[in-house]
Simulated scan of single mutants.
Amino acid sequence: MDKRIYFLMILSFIIGLVELIISGILDLIAEDLHVSIGQAGLLITVFAVIFAVASPILLVMTAKIERKRLTLVCLYIFLIGCIVTVFAPTFSILFIGRIILALSGALLIILCLVMAPSLVGEQYIGRAIGIVSVGVSASLVLGVPLGLIIGDSFGWRAPFVLITILTALAIIGVHVLMESIQPKPQIPLRKQLAAFKNHKITLGLTTTFLYITGHTIMYAYFKPYLEATTDFNTTWISVIYLIFGFSAVVGGGLGGVLADLLGSRKTMIIALVVFSALFFIFPYSTDSFPVFLIIIIIWGILSWAISPAMQSYLIEIAPESSEIQQSLNNSALHLGVAVGSVIGAGIVDTLSVEVNPFAGGIFIILSFITVVISISSKKKTTYKTKSAI
């Protein structure tokens, strides 16, 4: 395995931190910049929406640019976004900083995902994507507690000072460690989008959207759920979040390994069956801590084990348009986060937070149905499985 894969994992971790690290410090931002927490929450919304929409568009627009050079350009823009965020005197300036970070970060994450397969042999494609996914999953699940700890100790700007420093180190790392990586020969956008006439691709992307929506309905409101259904104090809740986070990190790597060993199709089916069952069992596990802990660990693992398998599956379906498919899969993931948060909020406000796991489970069942239909569908064209940039 090329060691540069692990550098891409670290790079994806640094970029991914920006998205949710702000969640734990919204109250600090609101107080300092004299806005409501609801307004501060728009910083998450705008980032998620831009991140989801921009990556496929930017990937097409930059299709001819050499990948190392493009990565460096994006990192310098990302660094500017970090600096704007750290020194933002008003909420409006902070909002602009988030837009800069979202635009550059969206392309950086997808670049890491599409560069990874080009650094390994065909038999390690799933594993390479899984390793990069570890960085993404680690940033998303560890960002909240990390931002909370650093923000409470040193102020809400401190987490972004850390990310600024890490970004500067990443720029040095790209200059030193990464070699020139030429883009794949450009395929006309019309021909790329023609691949989506294949229902296997459309249903695969729908699967990602549905299972992440189901996961987020529960995860976004996990703290109030624990407060409503258990006697755990704040310390124990933090411990549970960390256990979940480390499990998710393991899941990202494990999903890639299983995709290589069992095949992407079997990995996704097995994971989604267990995942959906888990959500319906979850409400009845809080009375037994050992059972509850096991479910938390399995949930964390499965929440990110499916992503690398899906990425491998999309490459297998149509390798000649794999870059745009991976980008759209990343978009589907972030749209799922946004939609799941909104649905979860509606359930909490109108029904009860205790309904969230059942609602999440329904969406995951729907994702199982779409992936089965996708796998069972016939391909109109047979492609050779090969990924290169």
Results as ranks from 00 to 15, higher is better:
57 I>E: 11
65 I>M: 08
78 F>H: 07
33 L>F: 02
70 L>Y: 01
75 L>T: 00
53 V>N: 05
22 I>P: 07
46 V>Q: 10
42 L>G: 07
40 A>E: 06
51 F>N: 13
61 M>V: 01
74 C>I: 02
76 Y>P: 04
40 A>V: 08
77 I>Y: 04
71 T>F: 00
58 L>W: 05
29 I>R: 11
77 I>E: 03
25 I>V: 14
46 V>W: 04
37 I>Q: 15
82 C>M: 08
82 C>G: 03
23 S>Y: 01
77 I>H: 06
58 L>I: 03
36 S>Y: 02
51 F>A: 06
33 L>Y: 00
62 T>A: 14
71 T>A: 09
77 I>C: 13
46 V>F: 04
80 I>E: 00
32 D>P: 11
39 Q>C: 02
35 V>G: 11
52 A>K: 06
38 G>V: 00
76 Y>N: 09
77 I>N: 06
43 L>M: 08
63 A>E: 14
77 I>Q: 05
82 C>I: 01
31 E>H: 14
82 C>S: 10
25 I>M: 15
57 I>G: 05
43 L>S: 08
39 Q>F: 04
47 F>S: 10
72 L>G: 03
73 V>L: 11
37 I>R: 13
75 L>A: 04
67 R>D: 01
45 T>P: 12
25 I>K: 09
82 C>Q: 11
50 I>E: 11
33 L>E: 09
27 D>P: 06
73 V>A: 08
57 I>S: 07
72 L>R: 10
35 V>R: 10
61 M>A: 14
41 G>K: 02
83 I>M: 14
53 V>F: 12
42 L>T: 00
25 I>Y: 05
71 T>Q: 01
66 E>V: 05
65 I>C: 01
38 G>F: 14
23 S>N: 14
46 V>C: 08
60 V>G: 01
78 F>W: 04
48 A>G: 02
69 R>W: 02
34 H>E: 15
39 Q>D: 07
50 I>D: 14
46 V>N: 10
42 L>F: 12
54 A>C: 06
26 L>C: 13
67 R>V: 03
38 G>D: 06
58 L>E: 05
55 S>V: 07
27 D>A: 15
55 S>G: 03
26 L>P: 10
71 T>Y: 00
40 A>C: 07
24 G>W: 05
29 I>N: 13
27 D>G: 14
28 L>Y: 15
53 V>G: 10
50 I>N: 07
31 E>L: 14
36 S>K: 06
42 L>E: 11
82 C>K: 04
25 I>A: 09
82 C>E: 08
65 I>T: 12
40 A>F: 06
32 D>A: 15
55 S>L: 03
81 G>L: 09
40 A>G: 15
59 L>M: 15
59 L>G: 08
81 G>R: 13
40 A>Q: 05
36 S>A: 06
47 F>N: 06
